[in-house]
Amino acid sequence: MAGKDQHVTKNSDGTWNVKGAGNSKATSIHPTQKEAIDSARQIAKNQKSELFIHGSDNKFRARDSYGNDPKSSKG
């Protein structure tokens, strides 16, 4: 079973959140978007979920999938 999708979003103070889908609190807070993306990517890989990256305006800008491993599909 896949884990929660991870979102990278910008805070009003300029820091960046990593937050699991549906969570009210950030999993982690980072000074740069790159650091937040690196952290969120690792979580998404571990949980076999999706990574959603939002720009500085918090509009969706990119997505990576870590939950669709064709080798693990059962036919």
Rank of each mutant, 00 (worst) to 15 (best):
V8P: 13
K74F: 14
A2R: 11
S65Y: 10
R61F: 12
A44P: 06
D64L: 05
G22W: 00
N58M: 09
F52N: 15
K45T: 08
E35A: 09
K59E: 06
S39L: 12
K10P: 02
K4A: 05
R61E: 06
T15I: 10
S56V: 15
Y66G: 04
P70K: 00
F60V: 00
Q42K: 01
A40R: 00
R63S: 12
T27V: 07
P70C: 08
T32Q: 15
H30E: 13
A2E: 04
A36R: 00
S73F: 11
G67R: 12
N58Q: 04
S49E: 03
H54R: 09
P31M: 04
S12N: 13
K48V: 11
I53N: 05
I29P: 02
G75N: 14
S65P: 12
K34H: 14
H54I: 08
K4G: 11
G3A: 02
S28P: 04
N68W: 06
G55A: 09
W16Y: 15
G67I: 02
F52E: 06
N11Q: 04
D57R: 04
A40V: 07
D38N: 11
S12F: 03
P70L: 08
G67N: 15
V8M: 09
T32I: 11
K4W: 07
T27Q: 10
D38A: 12
Y66I: 08
N46L: 07
T27N: 11
D38V: 13
A62W: 11
P31Q: 15
N11I: 03
K25C: 11
L51N: 08
D69K: 02
G20I: 12
K71E: 02
E35P: 02
I37W: 07
S39D: 15
K71Q: 00
I53S: 09
K59F: 13
K71R: 02
K4M: 08
K74R: 14
S12K: 15
S39E: 14
N23T: 10
S12G: 11
H54A: 06
F52I: 12
K10L: 03
K10G: 03
S72W: 12
D69F: 00
G20H: 14
G75F: 06
D64S: 01
M1P: 01
N11H: 13
N58H: 07
S49T: 09
S12W: 09
S24Q: 12
K10Q: 01
M1Q: 07
S12A: 08
N58C: 02
A40W: 00
T32P: 06
K74I: 13
G75S: 11
D69C: 01
D64W: 09
M1Y: 04
A44C: 03
H7D: 03
